[in-house]
Design a protein around this nucleic acid. Structure first.
Length: 937
RNA sequence: GCGGGGGUCGCCCAGCCUGGUCAACGGCGCGAGGCUUAGGACCUCGUCCCUUAGGGGUUCGUGGGUUCAAAUCCCACCCCCCGCACCA
C-alpha cells in the first residue's frame, strides 16, 4: 500500500466526509451492495462487484448528490455454525483452509469453534480491508444480521408479510441429515449432488402373518418377479406400520417413521432368517422364494426387493451367483434356485428374449459385485422405459408401452391394498458431516408464497418500472418470477431471527436479506444509542417504514422521544427507495428477485427499488474460484500486494455487462504500473508546459476531452464501469500523448484545465492517487468532494477535430506508401484536389444533386465518377457527417500548417500544393477530395 | 433437460441493437528505433499473408441465407459460462 493511501484515508475519516445525513432539498442517491456472508474473508469476487458500487457512489457524489453507501454483514444461517462445528470435530481440511487460504493466524483458529467468534473475526478483517480499499461507506450504520435491533426488524418484516397473507404453512419432503437435524442442500453434501427424493412403490408380499414389503421403481415388472431378495447380513424388523404387520429393514423403519407413519418395532432379526421362506405376490398370486443377495442395501428403501431376472441385471447375476456357489445356501434353497427361469415381460427393440442376460454378457459381467452392473442397469432401464412394450403375459398391462404400464400397474396394485409408497433417495447422499441422509417429511414449515399470482404480477410490475442493468439481464428476472414456487423461509438450526409467532423456526438466510436496506436508514440511531433495540416494536417500525399509526401515541406507549421517532421516519422517507443495488449475476434467480418480491409486498410503489444492476462472475487465471481447489484470492492479499488504487483500477477494467471477468495477476500488475506512472506523467507534462498563444491543437485537445467527459459520464450512469475506466485511463492518456507529440510545447493553461478534469474523472476509480494529483496541481480540499467535470466547459471545436482526422489519414496513407516503396526518399509532395472537384464532392455528400447530374460533372473534370462514390464509403459516416455539418474544410491550409509535423514524423521535407488541371505533376491527378495525392521523391 | 449470457486478429477485449468509417478500437505481450553510463520508466513506429506507390488476398465458433455490401440481420448446428430452490 502506498504511503499516501493511508494518509488520505485518515484525512477522509477525520473529516467524516462519507457520513451522510438527510439534507433538506438536496437530491439523494442511495446505493447498496448485498452484505457479504461472514463464513470467510471477503475475496476478489466481492471486491469486483462491490467496487462498482463505490465507483458509482463517488461519481454521483461529485455530481452533487447527497450519497449514502452503507455496509453490513450477513451472519444468518447454517454455514458459519457448520464450519465451526467441523473444526471442533477436528476436520484437518477445514483447519488447513482457514490457515492457508483465509490467512487466519494459528493463534486464532482454535477460537473458531465458537461460531460468533468466527464471524466476528472475519467481520473485523473484512471491515479493515474495505476501509483500506477506500470505500466511501457511512460506517455509522453498520450492523450484523444477528444484532438484536436487526432481529426486531426481521420480526416486523415477517409479521407484516404474514398479515398480508404471503406466508403459508406447508408439509414437504426434504433430504434430511439426522446428525445436523436439518435439511441437506446440494452444496452441503459430500456425496450425492443433485439427488432428490423419488417415490418408490412398496409392494406387500404376504409372508405368514406379515407383509414382506419390497420396494421398486418399476412396479410394472411384478409380472416378471421370480423371487425376493434380502441381505442375509442385514438387520430386519417385524413391526407394526399404521397397524399393519410389516417386515422391512431396521433402517427402513426409521425412514418410514420420518415420513409420518405410526410405527412400532416388535422384533429384530437377521435377513438370513427369511431365506428359503415363500411370500405371495399381489396381482399374480405367485408364491416367491426369499433368497439372499449382498447387493441389497438395507439403507435403501425397505431393504427388500423383488427379483426380475429377465430385466434387471442385478437380479440376473444374483441368481447366477447362487447357482455358481458364490453365495452359500442350503441344498434345499439351491434346489429352488435351480428351478428359477427368468420371465420376460417386456419386449424392447434391439434386445432378444431375456434382455438382462444379454446386457450382462455384452458388458462381460461375471458376478454381482461387478461395478459395471449399475451402468448396465441404467442403460437397460432407459431403453425399456422409452422403447419397451409389455408382453402378452402381463394381463391387464399387455401391449402397453412401459411408461403407461407403470401407471396402470400402480393403479391396479393400489386397488389390492397391498401397495404403499415411500419417498427415497435413488442414490446415496452423504452430508458434509459424514452422515448418510434420508428423506424426511418436514411438517408445518413456513413458506413464502411466491407462487401467489397477484404477488407475482406486482413483482413483475416492479421490475418493469425499474432500470435493469445491463439491459440484457432483464429476461432472467421475468423467468425467475414465473418459475418461483413457494419457498421455505425458515430452518431449524443456524444463526438468525426466530419467527415471532413460531419460535422453533429461524428465518433462513435468503429470506432475512430482502428489504434490509430500509434498516440502514435507522440503524445509525441504534448504533448511536439514541434508541434501544427493545424499543423497535412492530408498531414503531410500522410507523417508520409504512407511516402507519400516530407518532404521539407510539412515542408515549414506548416511552421514547417523539421528535426522535419523527426524525427516523423522515430519514427513511429521505433515503428510500434504493437507487442502485449491484450484485453478481448469479444472485438474480434468488436474492435480487426476492428483493423485488418483498418490496412489492411490503412497500408502496414509491418505495420500490429504482435500479437493479449485475455483473459477471470472477474467474481467477481462467479458472472458476474454488476454495477447495485452492483457486482463491482474498481481497486482503490482493490489496496488500497491489495497493488500493491499482486493485480498484484492475477490477474496473476487468469486464462489463454480464460477461465473466478473468482476474489475473498480470492484469493487476499492469494496473499497478499504470497507476504508478500517473504522477511522473502529470509532473512531466506540467514541467514542459509553457505560456503561449492558443493554437488549433489546443482547441483539439479541449474539444476531445469534452467529448471524453460526455462518454465517461454516460458510461458511469449506465454502470458501464469498464468502458468508463478505459476511456479515463487509456483513451484520455492517449489523447494527451498525441497532443504533446503534435504540439511539441504544451500550453500551460490548456494542460491545466484538462488535467484538472482528468484527475476528477479518476477520482471514483483511483481515489487516492487522484487526491495526490490534485495536490500536485495545486488543488485544495478533497477532490472526491469536488464537482464532476462539465463537458460544457470544454468547447467543442469540430473544425479542429476534423483537421486532426485529415492529418491522421494523410500520415497513415504516407506511411503505407513508404512501407512498400524502395529507395531513399527525401521529399513528400502532397496535392490536395482542386476546388471544383471538392465542391462537386460536397454536393454529393449533401445529397443535393442526382447521381446522373453528379456523374456528368465529375466526368467533365476528368475523374471517374465511381472513384468518388467509392471514396464516400471509404470516408465513412462519421467523417461525412462532420464534413457536411461544416460545409467542408480548407484542406490546403490544414495540411500546410501541419506540413512540418508530417515531415518530422516521416523524416522528409513536405510540400503541400493544390492540384490544378493540366499541371504536369506526377501522381497529382490522383488527388481526391479529403484524400490528397502523395508523391515521394 | 429447462432458463439466462457468451464465442472477435498470440492473450485480454471494443464493435454487433441502428449493415458500408472494419484487416477490425484500446491494453498486454513481442519486434525496431529514440532517450539514458546501463537497466527500468518514458516516447515513437511496427505486429494476418502477399506487394518497389497508398493495392490485393484470407479473416470475426461452423455451415447456409438475405443484400450492391455482413463481425454486424435471418436460419440451423457446435462449443463455453451461470442458475435450476430448503445454500449462501
Amino acid at each position: 500500500m502506498k504511503n499516501y493511501e493511508g494518509r488520505w484515508l485518515a484525512a477522509w475519516e477525520k473529516k467524516h466526509i462519507f457520513e451522510s445525513d438527510p439534507i433538506n432539498g438536496k437530491k439523494k442517491i442511495f446505493v447498496t451492495f448485498p452484505y457479504p456472508y461472514m463464513n470467510g474473508p471477503v475475496h476478489i469476487g466481492t471486491a469486483f462487484t462491490s467496487v462498482r458500487v463505490d465507483i458509482y457512489a463517488r461519481f454521483k457524489r461529485m455530481q452533487g448528490y447527497n450519497v449514502l453507501f452503507p455496509w453490513a454483514w450477513h451472519w444468518t444461517g447454517q454455514s458459519i455454525v457448520g464450519l465451526s462445528h467441523r473444526l471442533k470435530l477436528g476436520d484437518k481440511n477445514v483447519r488447513k483452509a482457514l490457515v492457508e487460504i483465509d490467512g487466519v493466524p494459528e493463534s486464532e483458529v482454535d477460537k473458531f469453534v465458537n461460531p460468533e467468534y468466527l464471524a466476528s473475526y472475519y467481520t473485523n478483517v473484512s471491515r479493515e480491508v474495505i476501509k483500506k480499499t477506500g470505500y466511501s461507506v457511512d460506517w455509522r450504520r453498520e450492523f450484523t444480521t444477528v444484532d438484536p435491533a436487526y432481529q426486531r426488524f426481521v420480526e416486523w418484516q415477517y409479521l407484516t408479510l404474514r398479515e398480508k397473507g404471503y406466508i403459508v404453512q406447508g408439509t414437504h419432503p426434504v433430504v434430511w441429515c439426522p446428525n445436523d437435524k436439518s435439511p441437506t442442500g446440494d452444496h452441503d453434501r459430500m456425496e450425492g449432488e443433485g439427488i432428490s427424493p423419488e417415490e418408490f412403490s412398496l409392494i406387500k408380499f404376504q409372508l405368514g402373518e406379515f407383509y414382506l414389503v419390497a420396494a421398486t421403481l418399476r412396479p410394472e415388472t411384478i409380472y416378471g418377479a421370480t423371487n425376493i431378495w434380502v441381505n442375509p447380513e442385514g438387520e430386519y424388523v417385524e413391526a407394526r406400520v399404521n397397524n399393519e404387520p410389516w417386515i422391512v429393514s431396521m433402517h427402513a423403519l426409521t425412514k418410514i417413521t420420518e415420513q409420518k407413519h405410526e410405527t412400532k418395532v416388535l422384533r429384530t432379526f437377521k435377513g438370513s432368517e427369511l431365506v428359503g421362506k415363500f411370500a405371495i405376490a399381489p396381482l399374480t398370486g405367485k408364491a416367491l422364494p426369499v433368497l439372499p443377495a449382498y447387493f441389497v442395501d438395507t439403507e435403501l428403501a425397505t431393504g427388500v426387493v423383488y427379483s426380475v431376472p429377465a430385466h434387471a441385471p442385478y437380479d440376473y447375476m444374483g441368481l447366477q451367483d447362487i447357482k455358481h456357489g458364490l453365495i452359500p445356501v442350503t441344498d434345499e434353497v439351491k434346489g429352488i434356485v435351480e428351478t428359477i427361469q427368468p420371465i420376460p415381460v417386456i419386449s424392447v427393440k434391439g434386445y432378444g428374449e431375456v434382455p438382462a442376460a444379454e446386457i450382462v454378457k455384452a458388458y462381460r459381467i461375471e458376478n454381482s459385485k461387478d461395478i459395471r452392473l449399475s451402468e448396465a442397469t441404467e442403460k437397460l432401464y432407459r431403453d425399456e422405459f422409452h422403447h419397451g412394450v409389455m408382453k402378452k403375459n402381463t394381463g391387464p398391462l399387455s401391449e402397453l408401452p412401459v411408461s403407461e404400464a407403470k401407471k396402470k400397474a400402480t393403479e391396479l396394485l393400489r386397488k389390492t391394498e397391498r401397495y404403499s409408497t415411500m419417498l427415497e433417495l435413488p442414490e446415496k447422499v452423504i452430508c458434509r458431516c459424514g452422515t448418510r441422509c434420508y428423506v424426511k417429511i418436514l411438517e408445518n414449515q413456513w413458506f413464502l408464497n411466491y407462487s401467489n399470482k397477484e404477488w407475482k404480477e406486482r413483482t413483475r410490475e416492479l421490475i418493469r418500472k425499474a432500470r435493469i442493468l445491463p439491459p440484457e439481464s432483464v429476461d432472467w428476472y421475468y423467468s425467475t418470477i414465473d418459475w418461483l414456487e413457494d419457498k421455505p423461509c425458515v430452518r431449524r438450526s443456524g444463526m438468525g431471527t426466530r419467527l415471532p409467532w413460531d419460535k422453533e423456526w429461524i428465518v433462513e438466510t435468503l429470506s432475512d436479506s430482502t428489504i434490509y436496506m430500509a434498516f440502514y436508514t435507522i440503524s445509525k440511531y441504534v448504533n448511536q444509542e439514541q434508541i434501544h433495540p427493545d424499543k423497535l416494536k412492530p408498531e414503531l417500525l410500522d410507523y417508520i417504514f409504512l407511516g402507519k399509526g400516530k407518532p404521539e401515541r407510539i412515542a408515549k406507549e414506548l416511552k421514547i422521544n417523539q421528535k426522535l421517532l419523527r426524525k427516523m421516519r423522515e430519514e427513511f422517507l429521505y433515503w428510500y427507495p434504493v437507487d442502485l443495488r449491484n450484485s453478481a449475476k448469479e444472485l438474480i434467480p434468488n436474492h435480487l428477485t426476492f428483493f423485488a418480491f418483498h418490496h412489492a409486498a411490503i412497500f408502496d410503489e414509491k418505495m420500490w427499488p429504482r435500479c437493479f444492476s449485475v455483473n459477471g462472475m470472477v474467474q481467477l487465471e481462467g479458472q472458476r474460484m474454488s476454495k477447495t481447489k485452492g483457486v482463491f484470492v482474498t481481497w486482503r492479499s490482493a490489496l496488500e500486494k497491489y495497493g488500493a488504487d491499482a486493485l480498484r483500477l484492475s477490477l474496473s477494467l476487468l469486464a462489463d455487462g454480464m460477461e465473466d471477468a478473468n482476474w489475473t495477476s498480470q492484469k493487476a500488475e499492469d494496473s499497478r504500473s499504470r497507476v504508478e506512472s500517473l504522477i511522473p506523467f502529470v509532473k512531466g507534462l506540467r514541467k514542459t508546459a509553457s505560456e503561449r498563444e492558443q493554437e488549433e491543437i489546443d482547441n483539439w485537445l479541449v474539444s476531445i476531452v469534452g467529448k471524453r467527459i460526455e462518454e465517461v459520464t454516460e458510461a458511469l450512469d449506465n454502470m458501464r464501469i469498464r468502458k468508463a475506466a478505459s476511456i479515463v485511463y487509456m483513451d484520455i492518456w492517449n489523447d494527451l500523448r498525441w497532443y504533446v507529440h503534435r504540439a511539441g510545447k504544451p500550453r500551460r493553461q490548456t494542460v491545466r484545465n484538462v488535467l484538472e478534469a482528468w484527475v476528477k474523472m479518476m477520482s471514483p476509480f483511483t481515489p487516492f492517487v487522484a487526491e495526490e494529483l490534485n495536490r500536485l496541481l495545486g488543488g485544495k480540499g478533497f477532490i472526491c468532494l469536488s464537482s464532476w467535470p462539465d463537458a460544457r466547459n470544454f468547447k467543442r471545436d469540430e473544425k479542429a477535430e476534423l483537421s486532426e482526422i485529415i492529418i491522421g489519414r494523410v500520415l497513415e496513407d504516407a506511411r503505407s506508401v513508404l512501407k512498400v516503396v524502395k529507395g531513399n526518399k527525401k521529399k513528400l509532395k502532397i496535392y490536395v484536389s482542386d476546388k471544383e472537384l471538392r465542391n462537386v464532392f460536397m454536393e454529393m455528400l449533401e445529397g443535393k444533386r442526382s447521381k446522373d447530374e453528379l456523374s456528368k460533372k465529375v466526368l467533365s473534370l476528368g475523374i471517374k465518377p465511381d472513384s468518388l462514390f467509392k471514396l464516400r464509403y471509404e470516408l465513412g459516416e462519421e467523417i461525412v457527417q462532420r464534413l457536411v455539418m461544416q460545409g467542408g474544410i480548407d484542406e490546403l491550409t490544414v495540411l500546410q500548417k501541419a506540413s512540418r509535423f508530417i515531415g518530422k514524423e516521416l523524416g522528409v521535407n513536405v510540400e503541400v500544393k493544390e492540384y490544378r488541371k493540366g499541371l504536369p505533376e506526377l501522381k497529382g491527378k490522383d488527388a481526391l477530395p479529403f484524400k490528397p495525392a502523395l508523391y515521394f521523391e
